[in-house]
Amino acid sequence: MRFNRMLLSTTLVVVALVIQVSVLARLQLPGAVPDLLLLVVLGLAFVYGHMAGAFIGFGAGLLADLAPPADHAAGRYALVLCIIGYLAGLVRPENGQLRSATGPMVVVVAAAIGSTLLYAGVGALVGDTAARHVGLGSLLFTAAVYDLLLAPFTVPFIMALARRADNDPLAETKRGGGGGDVASGWLTSGTGLRIGNQRGGLRAKAARRQAVRAGRIKGVKRL
């Protein structure tokens, strides 16, 4: 199961990074660039939880920091996605299944705005003032809009893949631990019933034998 998680997470992160760098970044959209990598981290964190979300976010961010044409310090986006993945895992849906689209969409908007603010804040600490020249307000608005439009087509699909890859037959058997105990209880009670039936059968046979013997004795007396 752990291997399935690692393999699926790595594959999705690499594919998302390639699409983001080769396609989304070349669309020349005003303001921010749609962050497919962020949506992948959110989708996996919704299923795997906060610790896995933090690790996946760090790895995805580090790949984005090192992938060309990155023009910022390595580790900057890794820190941002690590925090976002951890926080998203804390508010993941129960059992990793979506019951309503409202909650995840709110998380997507908050993650888009939060990641942009964190990225700009870390950049300000290291002397990168590019966000000031572009306009932080415009970046926040466009990042939220682009990610919100892209999320319905990506996040549910990623969550479905994550749940499917995490489906372990042995784990399902253990997970039905309550069911296993119930099943064992049913088996135990069934065994008791069978034993009780056998005992009842033996008693009935003994009663019949006594009745037959009594009948024979009565018959002899009649003679």
Rank of each mutant, 00 (worst) to 15 (best):
I158R: 00
L149V: 12
A110T: 15
T10L: 06
A45T: 04
L193G: 10
H133R: 12
R26H: 14
G43K: 04
I19G: 01
H50V: 01
G137R: 09
R213S: 13
V40M: 06
Y119R: 10
R213N: 06
L79N: 01
P30R: 13
V108W: 02
L63S: 11
L139R: 11
D181F: 06
G123F: 05
L42I: 14
H133M: 05
P93V: 07
G49E: 00
K221W: 10
V220P: 06
V91M: 07
T129Q: 12
V107S: 07
G185N: 07
P30W: 08
H72N: 15
G114W: 04
A25T: 14
E94H: 14
D71M: 13
L37E: 05
G178N: 14
A130P: 00
H72F: 15
V41C: 07
G53P: 00
F157I: 07
K218I: 15
I84C: 01
G49Q: 03
Q198A: 14
L140A: 10
V13M: 06
T129N: 12
A111I: 06
G190A: 08
R92I: 02
I195A: 13
A32T: 08
V220Y: 11
G43R: 01
F55E: 02
S115D: 02
V107I: 15
L87T: 04
A78I: 05
L150G: 04
T173W: 09
V21D: 02
R209A: 12
L202Y: 05
R2N: 14
L223A: 09
A160M: 05
A143W: 06
V91H: 02
G59W: 09
G196R: 12
R203E: 11
G219W: 08
I83R: 00
A74V: 12
G123C: 13
P93S: 07
L161C: 03
A60Y: 02
G121F: 13
G57Y: 00
L140K: 08
Q198P: 06
A16L: 09
D168T: 10
L148A: 15
A151F: 03
